[in-house]
C-alpha cells in the first residue's frame, strides 16, 4: 500500500467509485476530435457496450461535433481512429466492446486536412 494512513486496514475500506458496475449497464466512453480545441476537452458518455460502433458514430459523435464549421467538410471515410493508444479501423457493425472500447476507454479521431478554424487547432 502506498498511501500512508492512520488505520492499518485502510485498503479494506476503499470505495472504488467509478467501477463499471456502478453505471447501470453502461460503461464510460471518452471521445475527442483532434485539432479542434473549440471543444475544450474530450467528452464523456455512458454507453451500452453492445452499441455498434456505427451507431456510436451516428448517434454520439456526429451530433456532438456538428456545431463546428469544419464538421460539414469531414470525409468520414478518411477519418483516422485511435482507441486508447492504438490506431484502429473500427468495424462499424461490430459493438463498441468488440472494437476494444472498454470502460473508460478514450476514442480519439483525426480528420485529415481539417485542423480547426483558420488552421489554429481551434
Amino acid at each position: 500500500m502506498s498511501v500512508v494512513a492512520l488505520t492499518p486496514d485502510y485498503e479494506k475500506h476503499i470505495e472504488f467509485r467509478d467501477l463499471e458496475s456502478n453505471f447501470h449497464g453502461n460503461r464510460v466512453v471518452y471521445l475527442h476530435w483532434e485539432q479542434h480545441l473549440s471543444f475544450c476537452s474530450a467528452i464523456a458518455f455512458p454507453l451500452p457496450p453492445s452499441m455498434p460502433f456505427g451507431a456510436f458514430v451516428e448517434a454520439i459523435v456526429k451530433p456532438h461535433y456538428n456545431a463546428h464549421p469544419d464538421f460539414e467538410k469531414i470525409d468520414w471515410a478518411q477519418v483516422v481512429w485511435m482507441i486508447d493508444d492504438e490506431k484502429r479501423t473500427p468495424e462499424m457493425e461490430k459493438s463498441l466492446d468488440e472494437n476494444g472500447v472498454k470502460h473508460k476507454s478514450l476514442v480519439r479521431f483525426w480528420t485529415p486536412g481539417l485542423s480547426g478554424y483558420k488552421g489554429s487547432a481551434s
Binding site: 471518452y30 471521445l31 475527442h32 480545441l37 473549440s38 471543444f39 475544450c40 476537452s41 474530450a42 467528452i43 464523456a44 458518455f45 451530433p63 456532438h64 456545431a67 464549421p69 478514450l106 480547426g116 478554424y117 483558420k118 489554429s120 487547432a121 481551434s122
Partner: peptide, 29 residues
C-alpha cells in the same frame, strides 16, 4: 494571437450568426 484569438473570433462570428457555441456533452475530468 496564435492559439486563442482565433478561437474567440470564431465563437464571436458564430454568435453573430445566431449560433452561439455550446458544448452539449459533459467533459472528461
Amino acid at each position: 494571437d496564435k492559439y486563442y484569438r482565433p478561437r474567440f473570433e470564431m465563437w464571436g462570428q458564430m454568435a453573430k450568426e445566431g449560433k452561439r457555441f455550446y458544448n452539449m456533452a459533459l467533459p472528461q475530468l
